[in-house]
């Protein structure tokens, strides 16, 4: 896994710091420059961000890992997936709920996906 755009992944940590003359200003600057959750971001801003993440990291495929019923991510998916596929990047959609009982099925799907991207 060379990069991610998860709400509780790298997106949560970037940018590492903000600028300003005191801690409060730097804190505020960091918060307002963080890339927002898809609930608040527009698709137009997110498409280039994900494309850039893929290019920068050299990723050969993208796995969309969704919490069941998460509207913002589910709604962004069609546009993001179409843009990535157009750019020759294979995608895999995995939806999971709190039960977590998808291990076996998931393993098969991941293996098939890795074969596609030549992993």
């Amino acid at each position: 896994m060379v990069a991610d755009d998860l709400c509780n992944g790298y997106r949560f940590c970037e940018p590492a710091d903000g600028s300003g003359k005191d801690p409060m200003e730097r804190l505020i600057d960091r918060y307002i420059h963080r890339f927002p959750c898809p609930a608040r971001a527009t698709i137009e801003d997110r498409v280039p961000r994900v494309r850039e993440l893929v290019e920068r990291s050299g990723a050969r495929g993208v796995i969309f890992l969704f919490q069941k019923f998460c509207t913002p991510h589910l709604a962004d998916y069609p546009a993001l997936a179409a843009e990535l596929k157009n750019g020759g990047i294979p995608v895999l959609l995995v939806e999971m709920d709190e039960s977590g009982n998808i291990e076996g099925q998931l393993k098969t799907r991941f293996e098939a996906f890795f074969e596609i991207i030549g992993g």
Binding site: A75, Y77, A81, A82
Partner: peptide, 9 residues
């Protein structure tokens, strides 16, 4: 067919 989940509004 565009990829919109039936769980969406």
């Amino acid at each position: 067919s565009m990829g919109f989940s039936p769980d969406l509004c």
